[in-house]
Design a protein around this nucleic acid. Structure first.
Length: 427
RNA sequence: GGAGAGGUGGCAGAGCGGUUGAAUGCACCGGUCUUGAAAACCGGCAAGGGUGAGAGCCCUUCGUGGGUUCAAAUCCCACCCUCUCCGCCA
């Protein structure tokens, strides 16, 4: 959500920000509605003031036993004219709210220009790519070879884009999630949290999924399935005024995530890369505005630590203007190396996305803190990042650890969690 | 699902249809006192918005949305949530 005061004071900067998002300038249109609304508001408030004042006089007069009929008639006269103005004001306020809620966040100055994911900026590449003396298989071949990954069964039970894992692979999912949570809680100070997986519309609006992206979500009668734990975790501070001394707040959660993938028909149809249901360990930080840039680097490094401990090669990209999400000011993507993709030639695929949303979500959520020095309330900054997407991590562990005979050597960090150092086919 | 009770400021907790934006206590901030701290005492302390150079003035908000009334935290209706009991159930 945008700050109308910022637009009033910096209309040109606002339009320039829209332009970076490939949107047409709107500041003058917004400001006209804003100015009309405010003048209506002033008129309405003036009438309300007179109404309140006269009503008090009526009370005082009646207390003395006087005849208040003339004053009552006066109030009725004032009130008769109010609904028309109020309706008009409400319509304008609605229009303004819709704009402010549906326009994407202003990009940070550091975000490179670009149209799409091909123009993201490579920041660093970490780890050595595994070398194979054979053509590496993808996780589908490997998982089915192990007899522990069944897409047909997923389809029977639920439909396309579902899978059933069993045996060691089912345990691997659990091991990865536990390993990630253990790392974030014991090494990085995130508080483990178990939030609802269904949330109401207000919560979905707080983080920016609604009102604009309803078609990407699954819904029940009156609730929505979370597409990421970012939604419930971030909204924990909605409508709150946090004591500034308590910042930063850091939370992590392992949850199932549900996405309709409405815009992705035909993409990534093979395998576990893009499922309607997947699990993810999410990190959320709630910080003082001065700290959010630094916190984004910290959060990104926390996600990277997981990849490093799992001995998975990856690269870090800064998303360009055309690829940065609706609520984000700036985003780092972590892409893991998947040697089995592209016919065994391998490719990098997104496994984490760490974003600083600045005050954008906080303004939607009314999430504030009290500044100890000034005593004022200010909007918090919110950040979220995957740490990591568990399903894609499982894919990476399979494809990077594969042996010619189809067994999988596990990274050392998982041996304790798995009770073994390798995955082998069912007997 | 049924019956009952209740939702008021950061927290606890008063509140008669009319000077109640809301008593009181706690917490918090400032001051007096003290070598320092504590205690005690004094003072301050809701959020959002409009307007104004500013001091200030004004509007809105007592779970949410409607309604009654000249006037609603207070009355009426619907919904949401919490608690207690009963039923059902992982």
């Amino acid at each position: 959500m945008h700050d109308i005061r910022f637009i009033r004071e910096n209309p040109d900067a606002f339009d320039a920000a829209l332009k970076r998002r490939k949107l047409t300038p709107m500041a003058s249109e917004i400001l006209e509605a804003d100015s009309n609304r405010r003048s209506l508001q002033a008129k309405i408030q003036e009438m309300q003031s007179r109404r309140n004042q006269t009503s008090k006089e009526i009370g005082a007069l009646k207390a003395k036993g006087g005849d208040a009929n003339a004053l009552i008639a006066e109030v009725n006269e004032i009130k008769a004219n109010m609904p028309a103005l109020e309706n008009e004001e409400a319509k304008l306020a609605d229009k303004l709210d819709t704009w402010l809620l549906e326009l994407p966040n202003i990009l940070d100055a550091s975000v490179p220009d670009g149209d799409d994911e091909t123009q993201n900026e490579l920041i660093r590449t970490i780890g050595d790519l595994p070398q194979f003396s054979f053509t590496p298989k993808d996780h589908v071949a490997l998982g089915e070879g192990l007899g522990q990954m069944d897409f047909a069964l997923g389809a029977k039970l639920a439909g396309a884009r579902f899978v059933v894992l069993s045996g060691q692979l089912a345990r691997l999912e659990r091991a990865l999630a536990t390993f990630m949570l253990d790392t974030h809680t014991t090494e990085f100070g995130y508080v483990e949290t178990l939030p609802p997986a269904l949330v109401n519309s207000q919560t979905m609006t707080g983080t920016g999924q609604l009102p604009k992206f309803a078609e990407d979500l699954y819904r029940t009668d009156d609730k929505w399935l979370i597409p990421t734990a970012e939604v419930p975790l971030t909204n924990i501070v909605a409508d709150e005024i946090i004591n500034g001394a308590a910042l930063p707040l850091r939370m992590t959660a392992y949850t199932q995530c549900f996405r309709s993938e409405a815009g992705s028909a035909g993409r990534d149809t093979r395998g576990m890369i893009r499922q309607h249901q997947f699990s993810k360990v999410e990190m959320v930080s709630i910080v003082h505005p001065d700290q959010s840039t630094e916190e984004l680097d910290r959060m990104t490094s926390c996600a990277e630590a997981i990849l490093q401990k799992l001995e998975l090669p990856y690269r870090v990209l800064k998303l360009c203007s055309g690829d940065t999400g609706f609520s984000a000011q700036q985003t780092y993507d972590l892409e893991v190396w998947l040697p089995g993709q592209d016919e065994g030639r391998g490719m990098y695929r997104e496994i984490s996305s760490c974003s600083n949303c600045g005050p954008f979500q906080a303004r939607r959520m009314k999430a504030r803190f009290r500044d100890a020095e000034t005593g004022d309330t200010r909007f918090l900054h919110t950040l979220n990042g995957s740490g990591l997407a568990v399903g894609r991590t499982l894919i990476a562990v399979l494809e990077n650890g594969q042996q010619e005979n189809g067994s999988i050597l596990l990274p050392r960090a998982l041996h304790g969690y798995m009770g073994t150092d390798r995955l082998v086919a069912k007997a």
